[in-house]
Amino acid sequence: MLRWCVRPLERCFGRLGGGGDGLLWHLDLKPHASGDFSIAVVQANSSLEDQAQVLTSPSATYVGVYDGHGGPEASRFVNSHLFPHLHKFASEQGGLSVDVIKKAFNATEEEFLHLVKRSWPTQPQIASVGSCCLVGVITEDTIYVANLGDSRAVLGHRGVGGRPVAERLSSDHNVALEEVRREVAALHPDDSHIVVHTRGVWRIKGIIQVSRSIGDVYLKKPDFSRDPLFQQFVSPVPMKRPVISAEPSILKRKLKPHDLFMIFASDGLWEQLSDDTAVDIVFKNPRAGIAKRLVRAALNEAAKKREIRYSDIKRIEKGTRRHFHDDITVIVIYLNQHHQGMPSPSRSNDSSYDNTSSPVDIFSFNSDDAEEPLHPRK
């Protein structure tokens, strides 16, 4: 069986570097099965709602970015439960597949529902907590990307003339997009107010922008929304059936020689940078610290939009900082073994989930780490 090692990043790598950005934590570079990876996180909310993890094994690399909303409980839960479910179902079915990923997402959703039911009498507001969920799996010659919500995975590859090309690998489930609004409306033909424009943006039932998530139980189970105990914290939502779902969109794609790297990030990055801009930054800069460079580029853009200096925004404290930008989590996965066409000496020939006795580490950044900065800068 796998020797699971779930540890905060500080205990994986020692002290994480502070980048002079106040609430920024980063890992400059670390090897994985077929290349290197880099991580950076910056906190904006009073409690960091982003979670992230990278699992490295000899045969595959697993990446997770979980962007919570309404609180950190759902994203923390996904951070602890989704990868073990992937391992369990992959072991039972002889390897990774689209079906395995769907089962892992569904099991995580069902377990969180059970947690909500258990916590309900003393913590009814937990029914309004949810999380976007972005997962990537890179095997010897294939990538899988599964998504709920509006975190995003973008691949960078070398195009004509050696120029960088951005290829989006995930679907955004956000009603800011007309196609998503049409999708939601088609599922609710008897509800003319399923998506409304309020407070400057489109929202489902005037409440939430994402149409798929883990959690948000009160938008999936009408009984919770109608309960007087819950209505002490959240206004009742008139609905006859679920208005959002936990059904992930899943892409399976063969890796190609010109594929160079993948960027996995919460929407805090993509609110500030386009796919093309992010890929161009990674393409043109050194590997070490590349995730931190992307976060800083996003913070620069956030400062420009508010007509303040970058030096100002990085001094703003958490909580207040949310008025300027969201929590931002970025993981960059380099694919050098693939585009060089060279096998990694540490990889086995089996591209399925490694269920041997080989060591497997999960490098996990969670909001408990963020309560006390790992390497604060004055």
Rank of each mutant, 00 (worst) to 15 (best):
R377Y: 10
C12F: 10
M239W: 08
E307F: 03
L260I: 09
V154C: 02
S364M: 10
R181N: 01
V180K: 10
Y353T: 01
E49D: 08
H173T: 08
E179Q: 07
I204C: 05
E307K: 10
A303L: 01
G130H: 02
D267S: 11
R241K: 15
V279Y: 02
N300Q: 12
P242F: 09
I313T: 03
S225C: 04
Q232N: 14
E372V: 15
F233V: 05
G95E: 03
R321E: 03
E372R: 15
S311T: 15
V135Y: 05
L115I: 10
E271F: 09
L24W: 02
R199L: 12
A40G: 04
H193V: 08
L273W: 01
G17A: 13
L219G: 02
A60K: 01
V154D: 03
Y66N: 05
L251A: 07
A246Y: 09
D191R: 05
L299H: 03
E247T: 15
E109Q: 15
I281C: 07
K256S: 13
K305H: 08
R226H: 07
S274P: 03
I208L: 15
D326P: 04
L86W: 02
S225D: 08
R3H: 11
V237N: 01
D67V: 05
L113A: 12
W4A: 11
H323T: 06
F224W: 04
A186T: 02
D99E: 14
Y218W: 09
L96V: 15
R76T: 15
G215P: 02
G162T: 03
I250W: 03
G94H: 10
A265R: 00
E167H: 11
N79Y: 00
H87M: 06
D280F: 10
W202S: 08
R241C: 06
D275H: 12
S266Q: 06
